[in-house]
């Protein structure tokens, strides 16, 4: 069974690029275009890994994270945002954030390495 990755990201182009690369690497990919959809999809069927954007319509990434953690979901989360990181270590720990990447500074190959590390 391929591992399932949920992508929560509102930019359609970036979403397509994630999907193409992760599917090619053999993962099962599900996409949510906003925070509310992400929470709904997670509750329907939790993924093995969540790639989470922060600035999203309806419910931002921080809220999504708080919500799913309070619901008891424990899968690893990689934040991929174009906002500069402002989470200190304690916040990261309490929300269970495995990695934080600024998208525009990240190589796709590095993302694949990180994904593999948490799956």
């Amino acid at each position: 069974m391929p591992k399932k990755i949920l992508i929560a990201e509102d930019d359609q182009f970036i979403n397509d690029l994630y999907r193409m690369n992760l599917q090619q690497a053999g993962y099962d990919v599900v996409v949510a275009l906003n925070g509310v959809e992400a929470v709904r999809l997670i509750n329907e069927s939790p993924p093995d890994l969540l790639l989470l954007d922060l600035l999203m319509p309806k419910l931002d990434g921080h809220r999504v994270l708080e919500k799913i953690r309070s619901q008891g979901h424990k899968f690893p989360v990689i934040i991929l945002s174009n906002l500069t990181e402002d989470m200190d270590e304690a916040t990261r720990m309490s929300l269970g954030v495995s990695e934080y990447f600024v998208k525009s500074e990240l190589d796709l190959s590095k993302l694949l390495v990180a994904v593999r590390q948490y799956l």
Binding site: D11, F13, I14, L17, N82, V102, K103, S104, L108
Partner: peptide
Amino acid sequence: LRTPLTSIKWT
């Protein structure tokens, strides 16, 4: 600026 740049860079 970073968002469209990300797509360009990854492409």
